[in-house]
């Protein structure tokens, strides 16, 4: 056991978020939560920022962390800290949007895909990475809330099951949202999928 700890220290292997959270729940020592915040703050902020913009993202981010700190003892090591945090943040976000009467989502809007001008084959060839990035950003911002959410969560490393848990829906629904989101994005940035 001591050898393992020694090796870990020697190799400077970072402690998992889950271990840090369990230690924080147990001791309340600031250093543990500080490390977790340092690791996950940017991911969470980006998710919230992408969904509602900077102002509300900052507020909801704080609310979510406050809840994590307050309910630290209810964290269970059966899931990851990151998925727990995102789940809390998402609930806080939707509560806030409901309070502001801004919570209005449509499940699927396929018409969106064809509303944008798709670059021609010739345009693809000359489209440089900067242009592609700009098109991606524009398309990303215009994705419906739930599709963008599913896409972000997948890019953040969550598995389908975790996304379904965070967003309180079925895995099949998550798959559909991802399919639509990626279809829109790939079409608009000028990438094409085989067989499509």
């Amino acid at each position: 056991m001591n050898i393992t700890i020694g090796l870990k220290n020697w190799l400077n292997i970072a402690e998992s978020n889950e271990n840090l959270m369990l230690k924080y729940a147990d001791s309340g020592e600031l250093k543990y939560i500080k490390e977790i915040v340092k690791r996950l703050e940017k991911d969470l902020y980006h998710y919230l920022f992408s969904q509602v913009g900077p102002e509300l993202a900052s507020d909801v981010c704080q609310m979510a962390w406050e809840k994590v700190i307050k309910n630290r003892r209810s964290f269970s090591d059966t899931g990851t800290v990151k998925s727990w945090l995102f789940k809390i943040a998402r609930s806080a976000l939707i509560d806030e949007l409901r309070k502001q009467q801004r919570w209005q989502v449509e499940e699927f809007d396929e018409s969106n895909i064809n509303d944008h001008s798709t670059p021609s084959k010739a345009q693809f060839d000359v489209m440089n990475e900067i242009e592609q990035q700009q098109r991606f950003d524009a398309a990303f911002n215009e994705l419906p809330f739930l599709q963008r959410e599913a896409f972000i969560l997948q890019q953040e490393g969550f598995r389908l099951r975790e996304i379904a848990q965070i967003t309180h829906c079925e895995m099949e629904t998550v798959k559909s949202r991802l399919r639509y989101a990626k279809q829109t994005l790939t079409t608009l940035i000028g990438e094409t999928r085989e067989g499509e």
Binding site: K42, Q62, Q132, Q133, F140, I152, K182
Partner: peptide, 28 residues
């Protein structure tokens, strides 16, 4: 490519400098 575009986008979204401070103040 989607992943690259996503990561590039994420790089440009930086949390406000006082956010971490505010979170930790609450933890204290």
């Amino acid at each position: 490519r989607l992943q690259e575009c996503y990561e590039n986008r994420k790089k440009n979204v930086i949390p406000p400098p006082n956010l971490q401070e505010a979170i930790l103040a609450n933890a204290k």
